[in-house]
């Protein structure tokens, strides 16, 4: 369950619906940090989809709320060559796999975020791949 955002679930659904009606901007690839909050949130759910792609890999996680309704969260990771050393692979997630994701949610309150850590069903923890290999200056 999404621990800090479930109460906003209805608002999120309404927000997404409004965005779809209004149309959304294009050409929005980014690498900046201003999109995301600095606060960790945790998702517990099952994998819906895993996209191994540039410029960012994407994991869709279905999270069931207390009311039984499922919200699909889409979280991004860095590019394949950045996250590979952290242990990520192109074939490592399959639909239905249980997964826990620690992430920084986007600031606009929608069900999107940037991965800080992924915990697999067997307890294996994978980081974001960004800081792990940084050598001393």
């Amino acid at each position: 369950m999404k621990e800090t955002h479930m109460k906003k679930r209805s608002m999120i659904v309404v927000g997404v619906a409004l965005a779809l009606l209004a149309g959304v901007p294009v050409h929005a690839h980014h690498s900046g940090s201003t999109l995301f909050s600095e606060t960790n949130s945790t998702l517990k759910g099952t994998v819906n989809k895993w996209v191994w792609s540039n410029p960012h890999c994407l994991l869709t996680v279905d999270v069931k709320g207390e009311d039984g309704q499922v919200v699909s969260w889409l979280v991004e990771l860095q590019a394949p060559n950045t996250i590979y050393p952290a242990g990520y692979r192109a074939n490592m997630f399959k639909p239905g796999d249980p997964v826990t994701v620690v992430m920084h949610p986007v600031a606009n309150g929608r069900p999107y975020g940037r991965v800080v850590e992924v915990v697999l069903a067997n307890g294996r923890r994978l980081g974001d791949g960004v800081r792990a290999d940084t050598p001393a200056p």
Partner: peptide, 26 residues
């Protein structure tokens, strides 16, 4: 045998449609 980080317009477009546009919207 290096895994390269290529730039694919198709993949960027897919990324923007599925994530970037909505995540970055006001």
């Amino acid at each position: 045998d290096l895994m390269t980080r290529y730039c694919s317009p198709v993949e960027i477009d897919n990324y923007n449609k599925s994530f970037g546009d909505a995540a970055g919207a006001p």
